[in-house]
Design a protein around this nucleic acid. Structure first.
Lengths: 130, 130
DNA sequence: AGATGAACATGATGTTCATCA
DNA sequence: TGATGAACATCATGTTCATCT
């Protein structure tokens, strides 16, 4: 009895009191999906996401991206790979790749439910107020 | 040149950096719509909204409702009416009613656009990641 | 006890600074 | 200068306290 504490904690990472999804979690699904498709480093993830949402006016900041990436690594979902970047200035860069596919599936499943819940909330608001 | 400062300010009341709608604004549309339909006081608004979103797991807190109501009054959208509540304990209660219909329309128009933008964001995320 | 409201605390996010290559 | 990251600041929201009937 008493609702599973682990579950409660998981919820709090998604939202507060059941309102809309936190930005951090929203970004994390995108980072996972992008990591599945391409080999990118921090600021490239940022660019991709900004570009994707340009028309929506959504423009996340770089520190949020880094924090999200760090969390994904801590949770064993992604892994870090340091790479010497090509070009005139041999700069070191941190690439993120999928670490554990089971964890990826678990997280995405969670987010699918959550995104649909949020969409339901907005649909409801649109119906109720307009 | 330089985007209208008033407009910028209005945006910041809706969201931060273009991410999803803030709870405060979300609640405000509901409070307006409810005030159009019924004569309610603070905690009754809260109950109605909680009941409406029970199945979504969304459960706002009382202080947010009061803050939202106060803002709506400050913005000239709602007006306060003090009423002696019936019953054994003649308690005073604050009813909220529509104050300015033009302001109501203006705010709702703004929120319609915003809610649709947010829904677009979520739809996009669902398509991009699943 | 129910209602209103303010004060205060926390936590998510944004801004700025530091370091490295 | 671009990239990474941490430190720090701010602000939205949640928790707690005070007051009144």
């Amino acid at each position: 009895m008493a609702v599973n504490a682990t579950e409660e904690k998981a919820k709090r990472e998604l939202h507060s009191r059941g309102y809309l999804l936190k930005q951090r979690a929203f970004l994390k699904v995108y980072l996972i999906t992008l990591a599945e498709k391409k080999r990118l480093y921090g600021l490239q993830f940022l660019d991709e996401i900004r570009e994707n949402f340009r028309s929506y006016g959504y423009r996340p900041v770089h520190s949020e991206i880094y924090k999200a990436l760090h969390e994904l690594v801590d949770e064993g979902i992604l892994k870090r790979i340091k790479i010497k970047k090509e070009g005139a200035k041999f700069q070191e860069v941190v690439i993120y790749q999928i670490h554990n596919m089971d964890e990826v599936r678990r997280y995405k499943k969670l987010l699918l439910v959550e995104l649909e819940r949020c969409r339901g909330l907005l649909d409801r608001a649109l119906r109720d107020n307009f």
